[in-house]
Design a protein around this nucleic acid. Structure first.
Lengths: 139, 139
DNA sequence: CTATTAAATCGAAATCATTTCTATTTAGAA
DNA sequence: TTCTAAATAGAAATGATTTCGATTTAATAG
């Protein structure tokens, strides 16, 4: 899949800067979720320009709040980010060994509304564990 | 409901200290989720002894990992804790306005296993929003 | 193509929740 | 009562994340 990142940024009313493009490209080719520092590392590799950590943080947060990338809540409390081409509502299963991500399509959230006396604005749902490949390698 | 906290602590192989009892009592009477600092505040009120923040953190984490209290992942990234008498597997809806908590009994996690190519060790699920009372007050 | 300006970036410094460290105290077993 | 491992206190450190002010730059208009 090819993404037109300049176009994407414009549609989000964000300026098309080399830093942003490098971040998006790094995210979109990563096969695992990445910490902001790791994103910086990837960006350095592919961009001539240097990108400071605050810029990385700012953009990851911006892109995440716009729904372009997703946040992973790791048990170690650090934030990780993952670029997911799937634009529908869904959640993730993350392998804590190899960091790969699988989509969860049916999160059962439809059942939520009926159980709650109030209005649900967000729901966080995430499964953590070990993917089959990593399970087998340990055995 | 009355809890025998000394007994509970013994069953967890933890020493029965005044600090722990004060933390458990504060948590069990709170009607909302509390930050560690707030727990400290509550504890000061009811305990003669002073309790340092590191002690609060250590015990909240210990009790949480033993399943006695639950952790709330707030969007502001701070950790909050909540004492929940319900010992069964369940999740929480938290009102971001008044901080009250409602149990979610059916999280739909049964559907998870089938969708994932691997082994799910933990699943985090949490609904955030506004409870009915707070919805009405805004209107 | 140049001028303009709001947005974005940089690097250094600050923030602040959380954790670590060390000395001291204490609960609970012998 | 004595002993010992566990727990606590308080101070200090940690480290991910944010803020700040100065500088640069993308994008628009002339």
């Amino acid at each position: 899949m090819i993404f037109d990142f300049p176009q994407l940024l414009k549609s989000l009313q964000l300026k098309v800067t080399p830093q942003r493009l490098a971040i998006l490209e790094s995210m979109s080719t990563a096969r695992t979720y990445l910490s902001p520092e790791e994103v910086q590392g990837q960006v350095q590799l592919r961009a001539a320009c240097k990108v400071g950590l605050p810029t990385i943080y700012r953009n990851l947060e911006e892109l995440s709040s716009q729904g372009v990338i997703s946040k992973i809540l790791h048990p170690n409390r650090q934030l990780y980010y993952y670029f997911c081409a799937n634009r529908d509502h869904h959640h993730h299963f993350v392998c804590l060994v190899c960091r790969t991500v699988q989509d969860i399509h049916d999160c059962g959230c439809a059942a939520l509304a009926g159980q709650i006396d109030g209005q649900v604005d967000v729901h966080i749902m995430q499964a953590l564990g070990t993917c089959r490949r990593c399970c087998n390698q340990n055995a």
